[in-house]
Amino acid sequence: MAERTIAVISAGLSKPSSTRLLADRLGDAAARRLIERGDTVKVEVIELRDLAHDITNNLLTGFPSSQLESAIEKVLTADGVIAVTPIFTASYNGLFKSFFDIIEPGSLIDMPVLLAATGGTARHSLAIDYALRPLFAYLHADVASTGVFASTDDWGSDEDGVKPLPERIDRAAEELVGLVTRSTRSKVLHDPWALPAGFRPNGPAGLE
């Protein structure tokens, strides 16, 4: 029915990484649901590791390389974002935060977002709620209430026998798809060159 793009951001530092693994699972689950609804879906994966130097350079010079600019563009023009980071020292890793630091303020307003994280043990699972969620609240993104945390054990025996990882992934993907299909964000024209309402080039305080 609709053509939709899901941008999947993975801040895993190793290759392969369990963060990317979780990101792919979430991307697949969301895409499957959208396809079942009759949508055409494109999943764009952004591996921040590949952009790590460009991200640091952007922090220092103030502008993105063309490769980084196209990655940012993919995120901003997506219909939904899946953001996945490893938990380092009690929070998202620095690469993850740096990527969001260089994105123009205000450009993720109303973006449907699914948050996910990986870590060594389940003791870190609340980092999604005390670290990632406030970041995306600041960005005024539209965040799914379920966040998915995968600890190392989740990839093996069903550590959580009541709610194993695949079920958590399914539930989160379902919520993201709900946000994406209800969102009107993609239909609104985002013109970075638009002048503010009431702007007058010779008015007092630049206003009419």
């Binding site: 010079t61 103030g62 502008f63 063309s66 600019e69 060159w193 638009a194 002048l195 503010p196 702007f199 080039p201 010779n202 630049g206």
Partner: peptide, 25 residues
């Protein structure tokens, strides 16, 4: 863009510093 608009409004010159950003910008 507000400053580009201002320069255009008055018919003044517009100077693009040009040294920190890629040319596409």
């Amino acid at each position: 863009p507000e400053i580009a608009e201002q320069a255009a409004f008055y018919g003044d010159g517009f100077f693009a510093n040009n040294i920190f950003w890629p040319k596409e910008h």
